[in-house]
């Protein structure tokens, strides 16, 4: 029996060790981006255009570009995702076609992000002749987050109790009226959480915009959906791999990484907060 106790102690410590190492990496990433990035951040860094071949000035066009791409992709994916989730949950939960749709959603979620980039390049940039542009990038990113939005919405819809739907139908409301006035409003916080999480995901994606939207150096802000843009994640990559002043560029890259982290983690924090508040309300 004594032996068993010792084994248990060793085993539990090993598992605790795994957790500890995981947390160590999280801590290290956050520590380095914050400590080394904070020095680069200033009002000018956030609001000015880059100067002297990317070694001075700010990264405002990259921040703006990321916001445009994110907004564009959500605008594209949200209506599609909502429609798809509503159909799957409310109209047709079973059946051959529905199974195929479910399977394609799951598989779309597993496609490597660089493959989305190639798809965007072949279809939006070349075939539809949108060029390397905000539009091409947003559509590509939109397809990438579509499965995330669908599954978040589905989960939110399924959490709405059946009694609510039945009560509404019993009062003579039609199916669509029930969905629009009863189901969607109660599922709203859940849907919102999903949308916010996908914002965080899109804002940080790099591979899909490599050949569909991003440009390294731009002193202008984009003026239409057909202009190419700078984007924060791509900018970090470009600063580290291109250009001729690695040291100055690394400092700027730290600043960009910090902004991106604040953006992405801040957005996720909002989602977690909404979810938490919802849970407390439901309890």
């Amino acid at each position: 029996m004594k032996n068993g106790h010792i084994t248990q102690k060793i085993g539990f410590s090993a598992l605790f060790g795994c957790m500890l190492i995981t947390m160590f990496f999280l801590g290290a990433i956050i520590y380095f981006t914050v400590v080394r990035g904070i020095g680069a951040i200033s009002w000018g860094f956030l609001t000015q255009v880059p100067r002297s071949g990317m070694t001075e000035g700010g990264v405002a066009p990259a921040i703006v570009g990321t916001l445009y791409l994110t907004a564009g992709s959500i605008l594209f994916a949200l209506p599609l995702g909502l429609a798809c989730a509503i159909y799957l949950c409310e109209y047709s939960p079973r059946g051959f076609f529905v199974n195929i749709i479910r399977m394609s959603i799951n598989n779309l979620a597993g496609v490597p992000s660089v493959v989305f980039g190639l798809f965007g390049l072949a279809v939006f940039v070349k075939f539809m002749k949108f060029g390397i542009s905000i539009l091409s990038g947003s559509l590509t990113l939109g397809i990438l987050v579509l499965p995330i939005i669908i599954s978040a919405t589905q989960e939110a819809l399924m959490a709405v109790p059946h009694s609510l739907r039945e009560a509404s139908l019993a009062l003579g409301a039609s199916k669509w009226e029930t969905i629009r006035k009863i189901v969607l409003p109660s599922a709203l916080p859940g849907i919102l959480t999903g949308v916010i999480l996908s914002i965080g995901r899109v804002a940080g994606e790099t591979a899909p915009i490599l050949f569909t939207a991003a440009t390294f150096y731009s002193r202008r802000y984009p003026d239409s959906v057909f202009s190419e843009v700078m984007a924060l994640p791509y900018h970090i990559y470009a600063l580290m791999t291109e250009g001729t002043h690695p040291e100055k560029q690394t400092a700027i890259a730290y600043g960009c990484a910090l902004i991106l982290m604040v953006l992405v983690l801040g957005v996720s924090a909002i989602a977690v907060y909404i979810r938490q508040r919802q849970r407390i309300q439901n309890a």
Binding site: T22, A28, T33, G200, Y234, Y237, A253, Y254, A257
Partner: peptide, 24 residues
């Protein structure tokens, strides 16, 4: 405390991981 921390690790963009890998 730990579960959200793991979620944070999941939401860090891949380019930041790459950057961290390069510089640290």
């Amino acid at each position: 405390l730990l579960k959200p921390a793991v979620e944070v690790l999941a939401s860090i963009p891949s380019v930041v991981y790459g950057f961290f890998g390069m510089v640290v």
